[in-house]
Simulated scan of single mutants.
Amino acid sequence: MFMGEFLHSIDTKGRVIVPSKFRDELGASFVVTRGLDKCLFAYPMDEWKNLEEKLKKLPLTKKDARAFTRFFFSGAVECEVDKQGRINIPQSLRKYAGLDKECNVIGVSNRIEFWASDSWEDYVTDSEESFAELAENLMDFDI
């Protein structure tokens, strides 16, 4: 399980450190793709394969299903951590997430997320105000 929050710089070549705490669980290679809320999602290969199988079951005849799978899979890249513990995030993904100088890397159960620091701060501020309401709404799911 991934959890925690880490702040790292992005170098001029688009590389960011993957926290050592996450590297073992991610494995030798993993997938990074566009996520929701203008961040990037990174999945270990086994989680990616599980997600891929679920998304394959979406009906091709549904416009929303086609749009989501296109968006999600077209941005996906396989990454490997270099000897310094960094990955190179492609320019198109950095642009999508607004990743420029600083990046928050957070653990979210079965995935990690890469956020532009200012976007993450805004998200946390907005979420703090509605956290109790979110929790109340999720109680319907036996959490």
Rank of each mutant, 00 (worst) to 15 (best):
2 F>N: 13
3 M>Y: 15
5 E>P: 13
5 E>R: 15
10 I>T: 12
10 I>K: 12
10 I>C: 13
11 D>E: 14
11 D>G: 14
14 G>R: 15
14 G>E: 12
17 I>A: 13
18 V>T: 08
21 K>D: 08
21 K>I: 09
22 F>G: 13
23 R>A: 09
24 D>G: 13
24 D>P: 05
26 L>Y: 07
26 L>W: 03
26 L>E: 07
28 A>P: 01
29 S>N: 12
29 S>F: 11
29 S>I: 02
31 V>L: 11
32 V>T: 08
32 V>F: 06
34 R>E: 02
34 R>N: 03
36 L>R: 07
36 L>G: 01
36 L>F: 07
36 L>V: 02
37 D>A: 06
38 K>M: 07
39 C>M: 08
43 Y>Q: 05
43 Y>K: 08
43 Y>N: 05
47 E>S: 13
48 W>Q: 01
52 E>L: 11
53 E>K: 10
54 K>E: 11
54 K>S: 10
56 K>Q: 09
57 K>D: 09
58 L>W: 06
58 L>E: 07
61 T>D: 07
61 T>W: 09
61 T>V: 14
62 K>R: 10
63 K>V: 06
64 D>T: 06
64 D>K: 06
64 D>I: 04
65 A>R: 04
65 A>K: 05
67 A>E: 08
67 A>I: 01
69 T>R: 03
72 F>D: 01
73 F>L: 04
76 A>W: 01
78 E>K: 04
78 E>Y: 01
79 C>D: 00
80 E>C: 00
80 E>Q: 03
82 D>G: 02
83 K>W: 00
84 Q>Y: 00
86 R>T: 02
89 I>N: 02
90 P>S: 01
90 P>F: 01
94 R>K: 05
96 Y>K: 08
96 Y>A: 07
96 Y>R: 06
97 A>E: 03
100 D>W: 03
100 D>N: 09
101 K>W: 07
103 C>S: 08
105 V>N: 06
105 V>L: 05
106 I>M: 12
106 I>D: 10
107 G>T: 06
108 V>R: 14
109 S>Q: 14
111 R>W: 10
118 D>M: 12
119 S>K: 15
122 D>W: 11
122 D>P: 07
123 Y>T: 15
124 V>S: 10
124 V>F: 08
125 T>G: 09
125 T>A: 15
128 E>W: 11
129 E>N: 14
129 E>F: 08
129 E>Y: 11
130 S>L: 09
131 F>A: 15
131 F>R: 14
132 A>H: 09
132 A>E: 12
135 A>M: 11
136 E>G: 08
137 N>P: 03
138 L>G: 12
138 L>S: 12
141 F>R: 11
143 I>K: 08
